[in-house]
């Protein structure tokens, strides 16, 4: 049994945000972190590993420095890493990215008992599309927004966190699950893990290795092939602070109606 965890290196949005002339993020000039939801996905995989001893592989598509992130995930407890990296892949949107990652996963082989974990969404694009698209391309069942996971053999019981409540779904391996940060508290690295992490394998899959994968259509990958074109990037203006009303429902309604009337909204 093997668990793949799809992870992304993202700009640290708590720092300064820089944008290229073509509208894409200037990633080189920004500090990077491991996408927070992906950390929850990794923790979910490692908890299953703690119980079953299965293999956990961290998979990322990104520029060569993304290897550093894979090493950190290995230091947390992953067994190995896969870096999908090539100039031809650069600038890919979610449609292109999911094709390449799905192609890479199918190249590596997804077995009957295997699971693919993804974060719900990356904090740079916030699309939440790559995980579900990978599942579609691999023709696997998917469960999104996992906030709790129970594994019993080949069956996973997943509690989905929705805007207005929870939904519990059962799914069989092989499957893909996207995780939200409420799922768990990701562990830290250990000194022992760090001392070993550069000795464990990190495979690089480049254009040459993947170009013949049937799931990858060479015309629709990279910046040129991606159907999405970025029109403009900008930092949205700060919203004003909200105001919480207090009191009985009647008092709060009166207050709200009064304020709206004062602003000529009603």
């Amino acid at each position: 049994m093997r668990i793949y965890v799809c992870v992304k290196q993202v700009p640290d949005t708590s720092g300064k945000v820089a944008v290229n002339e073509n509208g894409t993020l200037d990633r080189a000039s920004m500090a990077t972190i491991i996408n927070p939801d992906d950390m929850s996905a990794m923790e979910a995989a490692l908890r299953i590993k703690d119980e079953t001893g299965c293999q956990v592989t961290a998979v990322t598509m990104g520029p060569p420095p993304a290897e550093g992130m894979l090493r950190e995930l290995i230091a947390m407890g992953a067994d190995d890493g896969v870096l999908i990296s090539g100039r031809e892949f650069g600038g890919s949107d979610t449609f292109a990215t999911s094709q390449i990652v799905a192609g890479a996963l199918s190249h590596l082989g997804v077995g009957e008992e295997d699971i693919i974990f993804c974060g719900r969404q990356a904090i740079d694009g916030d699309t939440a599309q790559v995980g579900p698209q990978i599942a579609e391309k691999l023709n696997l069942p998917q469960v999104t927004y996992a906030a709790a996971i129970e594994k019993d053999g080949k069956v996973l019981k997943v509690r989905r966190l929705l805007e207005d409540g929870y939904m519990t779904v059962e799914v069989q391996t092989p499957c893909l699950i996207t995780c939200v940060k409420e799922l768990n508290e990701p562990r830290y690295m250990t000194v022992k893990g760090i001392l070993e992490c550069y000795k464990k394998p990190v495979a690089v899959l480049d254009f040459e290795a993947l170009k013949d994968e049937p799931l990858i259509d060479l015309d629709t990958i990279g910046l040129k092939g991606s159907p999405t074109n970025i029109f403009r990037s900008f930092t949205p203006p700060q919203k004003g602070a909200g105001q919480m009303l207090a009191g009985s429902p009647q008092e709060m309604v009166n207050e709200l109606a009064g304020q709206l009337a004062a602003k000529h909204v009603i």
Partner: peptide, 14 residues
Amino acid sequence: SREHELMRKNFRNF
């Protein structure tokens, strides 16, 4: 070394 750099980052984060 890169290992010690990673340790520093981890200790600080913790």
